[in-house]
Design a protein around this nucleic acid. Structure first.
Lengths: 231, 231
DNA sequence: ACGCGCTTGTGAACGCGCGCACAAAGTCGG
DNA sequence: CCGACTTTGTGCGCGCGTTCACAAGCGCGT
């Protein structure tokens, strides 16, 4: 996110009161839990049960849902189908977003083959790679295109989201090209901090970072255990 | 993280004042930026410059670093090498952590082959998969082991971190087995919320979630643009 | 028709984290 | 040795997000 701490406030008139950022980050989790419930045949669910499935407190869940309107029934709970609809709508999943994936190395190929994309509302429109040797290769049913084709692909396929799965070197270059081509939302798997103009959102997913954070906690737990032992 | 909002406070005596969680999450980013600076030959760096490279404000950076002691020199900046040392130490990267990777599907194989593990302090000690057909396969130089071997592998290899790269189905089972085997830190790539006993940390990395969050912002930007046009 | 029990929705307090702005502290030139 | 400049370290106020606790609302049984 381009450093906009503010909540996503909608203008008056239409009247969406604005959904806090922290809430938005949890909506996908709720959505998945709801789909799972629907698959099992449940039609209603209480905040308590849904919160349990999503791994959050029930009060937090209720407040989150309250930000997108009152769709629960007191004494009963929430209608699963209705809630799925409203959350999907809030997240903008009514339409199918087209995604361009840049970098077909180890990780890129895994992402291309991952079912998680098609899952709900996302379509991999094209694969792109900077390495001329890879261009023309067919991965997951798509032909790998050269970097130069980005503007055309974005335009013709109506791409609005870019996924960067390149090495850290060149990630910024790819990012610049994506932005220049008109992409305003980027998911970055490269271990690099990307500089983007205002209005462009970047979300970073960094494997190494996550491991190091775990390392910290593990380290702390180990130190704590030693202390207890020596006490 | 098992729902412990509190900061990682160290007991008196030894005197570590406790590092805020938000800070810990940023330390790996600083560390990477510092390594990049070191590679270019820089020996000192100002908070302003480092903050720029890490994509944060300089005040925030200084406050973060202050939590692990005063290692800067006023009027000069921070010594790159020294800072790398102290951050690494705080994160517990002094030792090499052994990691077991469960699930050698699309994503699992990509992770196994990813250089990001060996990068700094992490070693993939073993690969495990529930599918008997995959057991015995050699991936990234390691032979895939059956799920039953988890306890032995964890014990013999001193594994302390588990990575789950299985489908959502079975992720909880794998998680339980990891915990039973003694693993207290888990990185979960499966699209599922894992239930763990207290004392076990779980970090979730969910591709689909990230895309949906981007979708929300893209959706909002589109709505905003329409509004401007119609105004 | 009416009250009882269940569940939602929210008002209010709290705590964390962020950013500003400045004082403390060190360097460098003269 | 001193003064000016640079950069760190931090005290303080603010705003977001989480949590508690409860009142409002709805269904169901009688």
């Amino acid at each position: 996110m381009s450093e906009q701490g503010s909540r996503a406030v909608g203008r008056a008139g239409a009247g969406r009161p604005g959904v806090p950022n922290a809430t938005v980050a949890r909506l996908p989790v709720y959505l998945r839990a709801l789909h799972a419930l629907a698959d099992v045949g449940r039609t209603t669910v209480s905040s308590e049960a849904l919160a349990e499935a999503a791994g959050v407190g029930s009060a937090k869940l209720r407040k989150d849902l309250s930000h997108l309107g009152s769709y629960g029934t007191r004494g009963v709970g929430y209608d699963v189908g209705e809630l799925v609809h409203h959350i999907s709508s809030t997240l903008g999943l009514g339409q199918r977003w087209s995604v361009v994936l840049v970098g077909v190395g180890n990780l890129g190929q895994a992402l291309a083959g991952y079912g998680g994309f098609d899952d709900r509302g996302f379509r991999v429109a094209a694969l792109v790679d900077a390495d001329p040797a890879r261009v023309g290769e067919v991965v997951a049913g798509l032909t790998v295109l050269p970097l130069q084709d980005l503007p055309r692909v974005v335009r013709e396929q109506g791409v609005s989201i870019g996924v960067i799965a390149t090495p850290a070197t060149g990630a910024q270059d790819v990012c610049d090209r994506l932005v220049a081509a008109g992409v305003r939302s980027i998911l970055n798997f490269a271990p690099a901090v990307l500089q983007v103009p205002p209005g462009v959102d970047v979300r970073r997913v960094d494997l190494s970072n996550e491991l190091q954070i775990l390392s910290f906690h593990e380290h702390r737990k180990a130190a704590l255990a030693d202390q207890v032992v020596s006490a």
